[in-house]
Design a protein around this nucleic acid. Structure first.
Lengths: 353, 353
DNA sequence: CCCATGAATCGCAACGATTCGATTATCTGA
DNA sequence: TCAGATAATCGAATCGTTGCGATTCATGGG
């Protein structure tokens, strides 16, 4: 293995100068830099990351903790984040917490040793406060809708729950639907343990009720409890149909759930959108090729990742200064994709696959 | 930050003894180990990974390179691998190569510096040989169907292409289908650049033709070129229908493609499995909730990950000995899920969602 | 009683890069 | 031409851990 010392020797400079040159410090003379660069090239020098990390305290590696990478939402987020970091020559460790509160906490807690510069986390059961208790000053960015109450600790990036749900319901209203069910609101179904923390659920559900009220619709009977999974969605659809299906539209709190609803309705022979219209939230890929294609609030994942990395770098840069100014909350953009599950085959836009 | 030296001091031993004790070397006296462990506990000691990696040459971090994490196949694999590594207290960096040959190579090449103990890779355009050229002796494990010709270099784990495709086609035959199309065989469609290397395509396609021959079916007209993506699958279905759809069954080379085929057929009003039966390969989640549910060759991802990690550890252990004994090829198990896209609603098993 | 034997522990020297104060080269203006 | 200022480079210390040869300690046989 070729070391910096050898490169320096070959270039006729000291290791410290070689180091500065290779890292692009503007203190070295252009001519010197060139000598060093060429020597490094010639010898196929690669900096040793552990050594660099040990000395400088930065590894260029970040960690993302998600509950489940098989879930298309988290996979999409992980994909965007890994790509954005890669653009900046940074790396991403991904850890799967399996919706397990304690596992999540212990994973966070282990990070301090783990040559990791910062943590991105989609927490399902822990509040920002609880995470802060075990993160030992590591920069953290939450992907979540944390109420400002519970999260005075960290920067966060949130999905456009309020605007998005509002847009979805108004779209259903514009389609002539008046008996709109809110599927997956708070409290969750008691059939399975909930897989997502209460804050996100609350945000979306409250907004849904508020929008129904604004439109002069009855929100009293609207809640349809369900966990936010495809499996649960399917079961929920069966229960709904057994109970007589008193809705002409179902506004689902996320896509995974909505996909299960579509499947369950299909099994019961219910026409979508003929008998009941369905909307989702997130904009994951299967919604674009399932039949009927799923009308949904598509979150802008790319800018989500870009902002996340940029906020993380801000935290890294401003560390050691006065105690962090104030946690920032950013809400990303969305696009309402009007597809077959609300407007039917003929009127659906080209947003498939 | 509390260091090993401080722990040693608190326990009244030397740093080297403390190190040995904490790592569970059997050379330390049980009583000493206890003292050290307790001191470490009390001071909340966490080993510094960069330092350890620098000194020992092992970081406990591995890298997985996949073309696209949004693709359910790779997401599923990544999920299993991350989980299995986590069980052994190891970490996984994930990099996305975006089906880009050069990007993939440069990512591999960068790894040498990257305090990474080994590489798992789903290569799409590079042979084992090409990867070996830039991996600089790093332990590598390929997830791919590399022909033994092209890959004399590395251990590999392969999907059960031969057995699986054979089983799928025999199943179609048992369902009474006789005009079976092979969708996504080699050569690929020329509408889009191919996203997967030729070896895997060839393996599955050749097996498909062989099975058709065994069954006494005409394989001459069977090939339906298509890239292995949902988008392409949909377009391919349209083309097939425009050309008169001379098949009563379509054996797709993977699930992503099959899902697109199902969507395209639905758009054209073709009944599945009434007019044409469809099979996929991989066993990704959407096939379990799309309507009709997709009959497919479900790969055993969990054991794939377990074997991968175990083979990787073998490579790590046996390094430095005589030049590696011989690259091993392991083919994982599969299960044929007979679902609605071949046997229809009534006969389909419970393998949904 | 002493030395050979083995078990535990210790001390020091790395691992390879970065940092920072010290040193030398280069330039400016009187 | 030379003091003084500035720019560029250098050397040595350091990050926290592990590995290895040396040292100490306990044990038992001759």
């Amino acid at each position: 293995m070729v070391t910096l010392r050898e490169v320096a020797q070959a270039a006729g400079v000291s290791p410290s100068t070689a180091s500065a040159a290779l890292r692009g410090m503007d203190i070295v003379k252009p001519q010197t830099r060139k000598k060093v660069t060429q020597a490094a090239e010639r010898l196929h020098y690669r900096a040793n990351l552990p050594a660099r990390a040990l000395r400088s305290g930065r590894s260029g590696i970040f960690t993302l903790i998600v509950p489940d990478l098989e879930n298309a939402f988290y996979a999409r987020l992980a994909n965007s984040l890994a790509t954005e970091l890669d653009n900046r020559d940074l790396r991403l460790i991904i850890q799967v917490s399996q919706f397990n509160k304690d596992k999540e906490l212990s994973q966070v807690s282990e990070l301090t040793s783990s040559m990791c510069d910062g943590l991105f986390i989609c927490s399902t059961h822990n509040s920002g406060r609880e995470i802060g208790r075990v993160s030992h000053g590591l920069p953290v960015l939450l992907f979540d809708d944390m109420s400002t109450q519970e999260n005075t600790c960290f920067d966060s990036i949130e999905t456009p729950s309020r605007e998005g749900i509002g847009a979805a319901i108004r779209h259903l209203y514009d389609c002539g639907r008046r008996r709109i069910g809110i599927v997956g609101g708070f409290p969750p179904s008691n059939r399975t343990p909930p897989t997502l923390g209460v804050t996100l659920r609350e945000n979306r559900y409250k907004q849904a009720l508020a929008t129904l009220d604004q439109l002069g619709l009855d929100s009293g009977q609207a809640l349809v409890p369900s966990d936010w999974t495809t499996r649960e969605g399917r079961l929920t659809a069966h229960h709904l149909v057994e109970d007589g299906l008193g809705f002409d539209a179902l506004c689902c709190m996320n896509d995974s759930l909505a996909l299960g609803i579509l499947r369950g309705l299909a099994e019961c022979g219910i026409q979508v959108p003929g008998q009941v219209a369905v909307t989702g939230f997130d904009g994951i890929a299967p919604g674009g090729y399932i039949t009927p294609t799923l009308t949904t609030v598509a979150v802008d994942f790319t800018s989500m990742a870009v902002m996340a990395v940029s906020m993380m770098e801000d935290q890294l840069g401003g560390r050691g200064r006065q105690s962090r100014p104030m946690p920032r909350r950013i809400i990303v953009g969305y696009r309402l994709l009007k597809r077959e599950s609300t407007v039917g085959r003929s009127a659906a836009g080209p947003d498939i696959i």
